[in-house]
Amino acid sequence: MQEELFAPGHRGCAGCGAAIAARLILKGSGKDVIIVSPTGCLEVVSSPYPESAWKVPWIHSLFENAAAVASGVEVALKSLGRKDEAKVIAIGGDGATIDIGIGALSGMLERGHDVTYICYDNEAYMNTGIQRSSSTPYGASTTTSPAGKVSFGENRPKKNLPAIAAAHGIPYVATASIAYPKDVIKKVKKAISIEGPKYLQIHAPCCTGWGFDGSKTIEIGRLAVETGLFPIYESTEGKVTSVKKVKRKPVEEYLKAQRRFKHLFESEGGEGELKKIQDIADANAKQFGLDL
């Protein structure tokens, strides 16, 4: 049996998708890695001193600098002649990656470091109490984009970081979801086997922040993919090379299962918003050829 490299006893909520992502990533990578984590839920729940859930070498520095710290780890291994010792992986939340750390990430990708950067995307700043990030999807109510009398929640679509990463011309960009664990493991294995900078974005539902029962973390993740709201694909040097095709379900099935979208079903004008979200899914389906 494979050793559990992300140990139990961590403080993640019961049903935490980010914890599942961490386990799957380490299943793919094996133990010869050095992990860099920015500040965020995964970092906080996994490293309450004097404890750590990580059975691989791990470092947390700050919120926005994981890609730069990982760059430093990589060049140090190179300089010290220890390159074969470990693959370097950064694992950060959407806030750390797509908002505050995007400069450091872009620098790391552009400079060509042999680092796999993985974003576990739970679509908001969970650690500080469910504030919106630029990865929060259209229509989601968060504590800083709350639905209200004159608001339907988040009024901007998700920032497309995989496309931005791909625009750096890097050898491998992929999206995945914890609902498809073998796909995650396969993509992590593939990413670390490729020399150069790689970017992976793993959809990781958060029961606490999105408002669903912890038993449904995987089901919700699956619905995001099946509705076309989180397309799963791989791309190499800017060209899409594989797409997970689905028999698409209407977005309502995904949205109605979560508290963060509840207002869309209850307030006047919600229908129009649901239509807009369906349009986003349809556009994804068209762009990636998602439909079976």
Partner: peptide, 19 residues
């Protein structure tokens, strides 16, 4: 690097790796 913030961050990663 693309900023001083990253300059020091690279030093942190490298120093923690033994460089």
């Amino acid at each position: 690097v693309e900023s001083e913030h990253s300059a020091m961050s690279v030093c942190i990663g490298a120093s923690a790796t033994g460089a």
